[in-house]
């Protein structure tokens, strides 16, 4: 277990180094910030606690010197971003579950033996097959809502960034913007595949062909990428709001 956590730590550290570069911690709220967050005068305003830090590097050791604190920071009038954030985060897992369910039922429908008393011909399974188009439509709706809400979440986050954080180019916010765009674009691609019937047919099942299988794998892959992206987004956003 310690080996796994060590490996995870190594990967996280490498990724962080790639995205943030060298980092330091705000000495007041302990938020991890990037050296690159400092402006031309070496000043950084901590996005979490609002202290104004002059960053010095002493022999590779970060030395954040606190000069001031922004006590009258702009507060969001309506907390749209934190509220909206929960929509794409909450809906996507159900869309993924729906997609997995559709894929598994398709697999069973194609692989189960078709004898007189087989499960395939049972009343329950037949009822399930009849419900498949509806399940496919619900999955598509959940995915559509998740991707659609992500657009509003992104816009509200952008407005918050301009108002509350003064549009300062924090690495952590840049990362959030890039990830939001990635989530939206990947989500659109998945929506397109689903809505055009390239993955699930009118019967709600995957076509029993190589193309059908490949499309399903691509579709599930896109949803999985979205899950990963939104997990990182949620973690980074939570870190930005609550700190360490």
């Amino acid at each position: 277990m310690s080996e796994i956590s060590r490996l995870a730590d190594k990967i996280t550290t490498a990724l962080k180094k790639r995205v943030y570069g060298k980092t330091f911690y705000c000495p007041v709220c302990h938020l991890e910030l990037a050296y690159a967050d400092a402006d031309a005068d070496g000043l950084v305003v901590c996005p979490l606690c609002g202290v104004v830090i002059e960053l010095a590097d002493v022999w590779g050791h970060p030395l954040p010197v606190v000069h001031d604190v922004e006590i009258n920071r702009v507060q969001p009038k309506a907390r749209m971003h934190p509220v909206l954030t929960h929509a794409p985060v909450g809906l996507l897992p159900f869309a993924l579950l729906g997609a997995l369910f559709l894929a598994v039922v398709s697999l069973l429908a194609h692989l189960l033996p078709s004898g007189e008393n087989a499960l395939l011909h049972s009343n329950e399974f037949q009822a399930l097959l009849q419900a498949m188009p509806a399940i496919s439509q619900i999955t598509l709706l959940l995915l559509g809502l998740s991707v659609g809400f992500s657009l509003f979440t992104g816009i509200s986050g952008y407005v918050d960034w301009l108002r509350r954080y003064g549009g300062r180019p924090y690495k952590v916010i840049q990362l959030k913007i890039y990830l939001t765009i990635a989530f939206f674009v990947v989500g659109l691609a998945a929506l397109l595949l689903h809505a055009t019937g390239m993955v699930f047919g009118a019967d709600g099942l995957v076509a029993a062909s190589l193309n059908g299988t490949l499309m399903t794998l691509v579709y599930l892959g896109l949803l999985s990428v979205q899950m990963g992206v939104i997990a990182v987004l949620g973690h980074v956003g939570g870190y930005l709001v609550f700190g360490r």
Binding site: E54, A56, V58, W59, H61, L63, V65, V66, H67
Partner: peptide, 10 residues
């Protein structure tokens, strides 16, 4: 080093 840099800035 740390004291000097700090004292020159703070």
């Amino acid at each position: 080093n740390l004291s000097l840099e700090y004292a020159k800035r703070r």
